[in-house]
Simulated assay, not measured.
Amino acid sequence: MAKPTAVILFGGRSSEHGVSCVTAGGVLAAIDRERWNVVAVGITAQGRWVHVSDDPEDWQIVDGAMPTVGESGDTVVLPRDAGEKMWRVISADNRVSDLADVDVVFPLLHGPWGEDGTVQGALELVDVRYVGSGVLASAAGMDKQFMKAAFRDAGLPVTPDVTLLRGDALDDHMDDVRTLGLPLFVKPARAGSSMGISKVTDLDELPAAIAEAVKHDPKVLIEQEVVGREIETAVLETAEGAVASPASEIITADTHDFYDFEAKYLDPDAVVLRMADDLESYTAARIEQIALKAFRAVGAEGLARVDVFLSEDGNITVNEINTMPGFTPTSQYPRMWAAAGTDFATLVETMLSTALARPLGLR
Score class of each variant (00 low, 15 high):
L170E: 14
E249V: 07
L182W: 02
V271N: 13
E230N: 05
G121F: 04
A24G: 01
A253F: 08
E280H: 11
E237P: 10
L99A: 12
D103W: 07
D257P: 02
T283S: 12
L125Y: 08
P107E: 05
S97Q: 14
V131T: 11
A247K: 09
I321M: 10
S198T: 08
N315G: 13
E249W: 07
L28S: 03
M351K: 02
V235M: 03
F344K: 06
V298P: 07
I251Y: 00
S281C: 02
V77S: 13
A209Q: 05
V227A: 14
A45H: 07
L303P: 06
T354M: 01
E205T: 05
L182Y: 12
A92R: 13
F261L: 09
Y282T: 14
A339G: 10
I321L: 15
L180V: 12
T354W: 13
D54R: 12
D277R: 13
G361Y: 11
H216G: 05
K85M: 08
L347M: 11
I231L: 05
D278I: 02
T342G: 12
D307N: 03
P246A: 11
A189S: 15
V7L: 03
A189T: 15
D267L: 07
T330I: 15
V227P: 00
V272K: 15
A24K: 07
R48F: 12
G181N: 09
S194K: 03
Q289E: 14
T252Y: 04
A92W: 00
D143E: 15
G181K: 00
G299M: 01
S20G: 07
D81C: 06
R296K: 11
G192V: 05
S194N: 04
D313H: 06
P325Q: 05
